[in-house]
Write a protein that binds this DNA or RNA. Sequence first.
DNA 1: ACCTGAACACCGTTCAAGT
DNA 2: ACCTGAACACCGTTCAAGT
Lengths: 189, 189
Amino acid sequence: MSTTGSARPLRADARRNRERLLQTADAAFGEHGVEASLEQIARSAGVAIGTLYGHFPSRAALAAALLRERHDELFARGDSLPGERVALDALTEWMRLVAAHAAAYHGLAEFLGRGLEDENSELHADCTRLAGITERLAGQAREAGALGAHVTGADVTAVISAVSWTGEQTSPGQAERLLALAVRGMTTR
Amino acid sequence: MSTTGSARPLRADARRNRERLLQTADAAFGEHGVEASLEQIARSAGVAIGTLYGHFPSRAALAAALLRERHDELFARGDSLPGERVALDALTEWMRLVAAHAAAYHGLAEFLGRGLEDENSELHADCTRLAGITERLAGQAREAGALGAHVTGADVTAVISAVSWTGEQTSPGQAERLLALAVRGMTTR
DNA sequence: ACCTGAACACCGTTCAAGT
DNA sequence: ACCTGAACACCGTTCAAGT
């Protein structure tokens, strides 16, 4: 089951435009964050603003396309993690992977958070799947007796989100310290 | 030593405009967050946009004026907390107080974070003082042997900030759970 | 001393008209 | 099928001119 969905073939010029928009948007998001100007992206890509909207009806749709590959890699990694390691190690590694991913663009932590909450977001499916993997790994760590019995999957998702955001606000080092501290707080010593 | 600074008297009409702007801004920030439209605030207050800028040269200056009273109350509380309680209780209460304060306006957690980082922000002094109180209370808890020796004041500030942000993103309940979990992680149980 | 509001340089989003 | 770009409804910020 692919996450990508069936993309029926585009006309050659449309395909080129789509590709150029994605490249330009990646650079713009990287430099100015997920709220980078869409008009500027279209301009830099050498197309009219309407063309951008034609390909990506919303900022979330553009972000979803941009994150497609990275998310698929995360999903694959998250699905193979259980069994590979001791449950607590697997969970901690997962938390680090997602937090590192969220560091791709400034504002991404908040954006993904909205994607999880908003069922109509083009990012909702992706965010739900990320949260599902978190839930599964948390469950295993809990059953292994490594995680406190009261610690929910939502708690771990909140920690990952908060750690990601802290990385944007202060420094990756401070984010890592928060992660360590939070893991210690969820753990049955 | 007052935090307020000496405000020399304004002309009567200017004083009225300033007051109206603050009232309107409080409502707008409460409804739309700290990034609420300044033009709309001026319009709702019945003054021209230039008048708003005349009184508050930046969004941070407006926010600082808006938060003045609440911050002074926080400072007073934070200064009297040591000695009132067991060190860890004092620190935990402080964390809750600041997080509850940050819930006043959506986006305030991030805004205060920037104010701490940016030395030129009109909020810098306030944020530094909040961080200073956190540092002091953390130090006391550490010396009392309640906090891990490796836990820094910056760690506690990061936790407060992350908890505040989580409250905005998800729910106050989830924020409280994150706070409890983080305190457990910082503590020498 | 203070206020006004036009002016400038931007935005996001839609949609009729073109190819 | 797809692209263009004008049109609309907004922004933040400055500053000459008024009172």
